[in-house]
């Protein structure tokens, strides 16, 4: 299945991430760890959990940037996970068929039992969304919580990607970006949702919403009193009842 689906997937499941309200809290990164630790890609190994070089497998990471805009600038937090690209180079380079994009919903997955751990897909992905498990010797990545979003063993409210359920600000939305009527598609339209590195030609499904423009300024207050003495005089007969 290293070839991409011949026709565009019926559904394009993905995430929309609102950079305007992401506070960089990392809830999406640890909730992702927590679901996937025992999930399809389990374990999401930690190599040196209590040691000198803490490092491990994460499907989602949140960066902090400052943007110099000529004024006072701004700080922007930026979560980064697999974008489930329509034109996923990570899939086409895979020599084993371990990487595949699902026909049904466009989710890009790795079949760990087939993966030989050549890492070529991680070289092909522009976004660093592939996470090689050095311990297991296979490539892992965001599964879009494929074992959660459809899982009839879970309460309906829990059938959401873990990162989306957890995100306290509501900066992460999940849905079918192939359906123009979906909530996520509407968000993308209304807020000018964009692709990361469009020049790479990957046609990402996930979209990012830009931080909003800062609001306009108000005029200062007009004086009602000239000075302290005037104010006290002016207010001496103010009548309000308790």
């Amino acid at each position: 299945m290293t070839c991409l689906p011949k026709s565009a997937p019926a559904k394009k499941l993905g995430l929309v991430i609102d950079l305007d309200i992401c506070v960089g809290c990392q809830a999406c990164t640890t909730s992702c760890k927590e679901w996937n630790a025992g999930g399809r890609a389990a374990p999401v190994t930690d190599y040196d959990a209590y040691g000198a070089t803490p490092d491990g497998v994460w499907f989602n990471r949140v960066h902090g940037y400052e943007v110099e805009d000529g004024g006072s600038g701004r700080t922007v937090y930026f979560p980064r996970s697999c974008l489930h690209c329509d034109n996923a180079p990570c899939v086409t380079v895979c020599p084993t068929g371990a990487s595949f994009k699902r026909e049904a919903d466009g989710i890009v997955l790795v079949d760990e039992d087939k993966c030989i751990g050549c890492k070529l897909c991680s070289w092909a992905c522009p976004y660093g969304a592939r996470e090689y498990d050095e311990d297991a010797g296979v490539m892992k990545k965001c599964t879009l919580c494929v074992d959660k979003i459809y899982n009839a063993n879970l309460a309906p409210a829990s059938r959401m990607p873990a990162c989306v359920s957890a995100c306290p600000t509501g900066a992460r939305s999940f849905g079918d970006l192939g359906d123009p009527a979906s909530g996520v598609s509407r968000l993308v339209r209304e807020r000018g949702g964009y692709d990361l590195m469009p020049e790479q030609g990957t046609a990402p499904v996930n979209k990012y919403l830009p931080p909003r423009a800062r609001t306009a300024e108000a005029a200062p207050l007009a004086s009602a009193v000239n000075d302290r003495g005037h104010a006290l005089l002016k207010w001496i007969d103010k009548v309000f009842s308790r």
Binding site: Y65, F78, Y127, G128, Y132
Partner: peptide, 28 residues
Amino acid sequence: SSLGTATGLDRLGRPRVLQPAHTERNFL
């Protein structure tokens, strides 16, 4: 490609790293 296109923040100005996602090295 640049950090600007990689994050889309070229819309706002010139981005620079404030905090890496994790403080130690990782696979990438």
